[in-house]
């Protein structure tokens, strides 16, 4: 996690962020009210969910089956909606 500088003088010149992709530490998964649950029996590895997820939260496994990154998933439901075989269900959080 990038730390906030204590004083403005400690900021890099121009407010530059000189480390890439530090946002990965931000837990956007707390936004979620419903979680996607993948049923691999139905998955045909079309990868439509993987290209469509706005939060890179569909993990593409080595064999092209998919899993979910719940640390970042915002629960938008796009993956379940685009899946041609209905292999992804949106399940209410807190129910389990």
């Amino acid at each position: 996690m990038v730390k906030w500088p204590n004083k403005w003088m400690e900021l890099p010149i121009g407010g530059v962020i000189n480390v890439p992709a530090t946002s990965v530490d931000v837990k956007t998964g707390t936004w979620r009210s419903h979680r996607p649950v993948v049923n691999l029996d139905k998955c045909i590895k079309c990868l439509m969910c993987w290209v469509s997820c706005p939060d890179n939260s569909i993990i593409r496994l080595d064999d092209d089956y998919v899993d979910v990154d719940y640390y970042h998933c915002k629960g938008c439901g796009i993956c379940a909606n685009v899946c041609p075989t209905d292999a992804i269900d949106m399940v209410e959080e807190g129910g389990i």
Partner: peptide, 19 residues
């Protein structure tokens, strides 16, 4: 293009940026 950004849930912008 990494996760953890603050675009709304379901935003249409990232699928294009990723590609």
């Amino acid at each position: 293009f990494a996760s953890g950004h603050g675009l709304c849930a379901g935003c249409g912008i990232p699928p294009m940026v990723k590609i």
